[in-house]
Amino acid sequence: MTTTTASVRRTGSRAGWRGFRRLLTTEFLVWFRDFAAPFFGVVFPTLILLGVGFLIPGMREPILDAPPDSVWYGITPIATYVPTILAMAVGTASLTVMPVTLATYREKGVLRRMSTTPMRPQGIVAAHLVINAITTLIGVGLALLVAALAFGVPAPQQLGVVGLGFLLGMAVMLALGMLVAAVAPRASAANGISMSIYFPMLLLAGVWTPGPVMPDLLQQIGQFSPLGAAAQALSIGWFESGFPLLQLVVMAVWTTVLLPLAIRLFRWT
């Protein structure tokens, strides 16, 4: 160990991120040991997709009672469910996994412990944003693979719109998850808050009434909610020809409101 001198190396602005790569890999590894977290984030959307597709009668029969010039004509109901599943995948990791993880860290003093080291506690938040973004991508990839193989779901009409909707959806849900993580003092509180947001969000995203069968009122409300807007933008990009400007703007606005709020309110202790 060093002998005592009165001089201290000046810490540069990058010093706060020294060791971030190891932090990220260690957090990933440790997080992976909590089997429930990766399982839920990655597999849950696909399980729902499979369950709905195989257990609900008629989900795999093409829609023939729509007008022949409608975009829905000839498409299977399970295909119309795919955008909802993607929105769900985006919401699940962000809302059910991340806030609880970070609130647990706060409760146990992990964040506080981190704050005494040169690593900023922000590093741990950043690590979990990355981890959950990756989990979401894997979960979505798995769901899409299953959708294509098991249900023959067609490729999106407008790939760019789907991509944009997905990215904005991920941004807004991670921001929302961070806000919950920012203010929940304990893991139990984080779980309670998350769940009371998660289920209404799923409703608005069309988990029970996907795409064309969603009641008008629900759709009107849904388009202004983060996850509802994501599901609608994905659905429009996937099956229709229009541009979901309103939904994309809604997600962007929510993100620009929620993210600074989360950063501002974030408590380390």
């Binding site: 201290v8 190396r9 000046r10 146990k108 003093g109 992990v110 412990r113 005494t116 040169p118």
Partner: peptide, 16 residues
């Protein structure tokens, strides 16, 4: 400024 050269052991902090 002192994080690099100051080690702290806290009373109530734990790890994952």
């Amino acid at each position: 400024a002192v994080r690099d050269v100051l080690g702290v052991q806290l009373q109530e902090a734990t790890l994952h």
